[in-house]
């Protein structure tokens, strides 16, 4: 009987390990740019002293959708998006506190035809 319980223990341990491996994962982000300006970079944290950044290469032009980006962590993140007005030579940082669930996916749209109108949805 003891051997049976021991085998059952090993089986439960293996099952627990499988269940753990099935859960979680970094959240993912995809950007769609319908603004008049190219999107250069996305980051989390303070834009002046960034902790995590992802440069879009090539820059995300108007009407394009980025590749799927793995974020470093889930939660209510201090997300920011750097949009560049190449004609004026000015960059705009869109600060957006945004919730990302563990293993989740979110598509954000960058829109605005003027620098003062730049925003993201949803």
């Amino acid at each position: 009987m003891i051997r049976g319980f021991f085998a059952m223990g090993i089986a439960i341990a293996a099952l627990s390990g499988c269940l753990v491996d099935l859960y979680g994962g970094d959240p993912r982000l995809q950007l769609k740019n319908t603004s008049a300006f190219p999107v250069k970079t996305v980051g989390v944290g303070d834009p002046d002293n960034p902790t995590w950044t992802h440069d879009l290469e090539p820059v995300l032009k108007t009407g394009k959708t980025s590749e799927v980006i793995d974020l470093p962590v889930a939660g209510d993140l201090n997300l920011w998006i750097l949009v560049s007005d190449t004609a004026a030579g000015l960059d705009t940082v869109l600060l957006r506190p945004q919730r990302f669930d563990l293993g989740g996916f979110r598509l954000l749209e960058v829109k605005g035809q003027d620098r003062s109108e730049l925003s993201t949805t949803p």
């Binding site: 979680g24 944290g45 303070d46 939660g75 506190p97």
Partner: peptide
């Protein structure tokens, strides 16, 4: 996963 782990740079983390 549980919420509410504050991080100075990233925000409030989910983990």
């Amino acid at each position: 996963a549980v919420d509410r782990e504050p991080h100075q740079a990233y925000g409030t983390l989910h983990g």
